[in-house]
């Protein structure tokens, strides 16, 4: 950041990032943990209050900006990525964080989401995925599993869900990650990595809705199962899981398989090593779709992190180049364009 206001300023504490408003999420909501980890991360990164701009759409998650002491904008349903695009292009030196939910981003805002990723807008998209519409009180969402019984699907939802990680990868997001509301340390690590990323950073957060979809992620993240059902991705490390890290993921062709390293058939050398900088994105896609396979653990961590010129950088580069070529525009210049003749 080129901001010199930072010099000689006391570093802020997590509580300094609280706006002081009463937080009105339901008791036990996963959003509390996300808010707390964001405040800790902002303090750790060393942000001043005027630096990050926090933008949201509509839904429970989108109340987020009101609870932070930074600049915040609570937008309209689905449009947070577009709002954030305008803000980041206007303020290229400020980090723009977006809080959004599965209805907001995957349904009404789907178009804005894919295009923000495609354009590599320099924004951080936090998807609070609880697989349900909360604020409208319990209808199925674009990430709800098929067959889910809700108020609008009394006989079971007949929709196939989106895989948000796959959608982000397919839209060419340059940073794609997943974390879990139950894992505050992991969440902070991911937020910190996202803060260092220039370009679209997409983070899916498994977030529990205690009222309308309680326990939606218990299969993955509950204490007693998480060792076996969650694969923590680490760059450059073999993909191991299980209580004693005795299990690993191997590739059979393009198909990932879970194997036990103790049964003598496979060694750690057979286990695939994670490489988040893989430009092709093939490995990231394979990992993304492990979530759909009940026989495989669900990966969390950074799926992909590559550096590409952002939309804002390209725009500033054009402004600089054209200004060098044509000279900085003035009113006199503007009013002398075109085929001019004089009347006396």
């Amino acid at each position: 950041m080129t901001d010199n206001t930072k010099i000689n300023v006391e570093p802020l504490k997590p509580k300094d990032f609280s706006s002081g408003l009463d937080v009105r999420w339901c008791p036990g909501c996963g959003d509390y943990s996300i808010l707390s980890q964001i405040q800790k991360t902002f303090a750790k990164i060393g942000y001043q209050k005027h630096e990050p701009i926090v933008i949201s759409g509509i839904g429970c998650s989108s109340r987020f900006p009101y609870y932070l002491s930074t600049y915040g904008f609570h937008g309209i349903h689905g449009r947070a990525p577009a709002l954030a695009s305008g803000t980041t292009l206007a303020l290229p030196d400020h980090p723009v964080w977006v809080a959004t939910g599965d209805g907001d981003l995957m349904s009404i805002g789907g178009n804005h989401f894919i295009h923000a990723c495609r354009k590599n807008m320099d924004i951080k998209l936090l998807l609070f995925n609880n697989r349900i519409y909360g604020l409208t009180k319990g209808q199925y969402s674009p990430t709800s599993e098929k067959g889910k019984i809700t108020k609008t699907s009394p006989y079971g939802s007949i929709d196939y869900p989106f895989n948000p990680i796959s959608l982000a990868l397919g839209s060419n997001a340059t940073f794609v990650a997943r974390t879990v509301d139950r894992e505050p340390k992991h969440m902070q690590q991911i937020f910190e990595k996202a803060s260092e990323h220039k370009g679209t950073a997409f983070i899916e957060i498994f977030q529990n809705c205690v009222i309308f979809n309680d326990g939606a992620f218990d299969d993955v993240s509950k204490k007693d199962v998480k060792d076996d059902h969650m694969l923590v991705l680490e760059d450059g490390q073999p993909m191991l899981f299980g209580k004693e890290k005795e299990k690993g993921i191997i590739l059979d062709g393009f198909e990932p398989k879970a194997v036990n390293l103790n049964d003598g058939k496979y060694t750690i050398d057979d286990v695939i090593v994670h490489h988040e900088k893989d430009e092709s994105g093939i490995l990231a896609f394979i990992l993304a779709h492990m979530t759909d396979n009940p026989n495989l653990p669900t990966p969390v961590g950074v799926f992909r992190s590559i550096r590409k010129q952002t939309y804002g950088e390209a725009l500033q580069e054009q402004i600089k180049n054209v200004t060098e070529e044509k000279g900085k525009g003035t009113l006199e210049m503007l009013l002398s364009e075109g085929n001019i003749w004089e009347v006396n």
Partner: peptide, 17 residues
């Protein structure tokens, strides 16, 4: 922008800034 809505909403985001 990707559509008319993003056109005006990005405008609001820039006005905020």
């Amino acid at each position: 922008a990707e559509d008319e809505i993003a056109g005006v909403v990005s405008t609001i985001g820039a006005a905020f800034a």
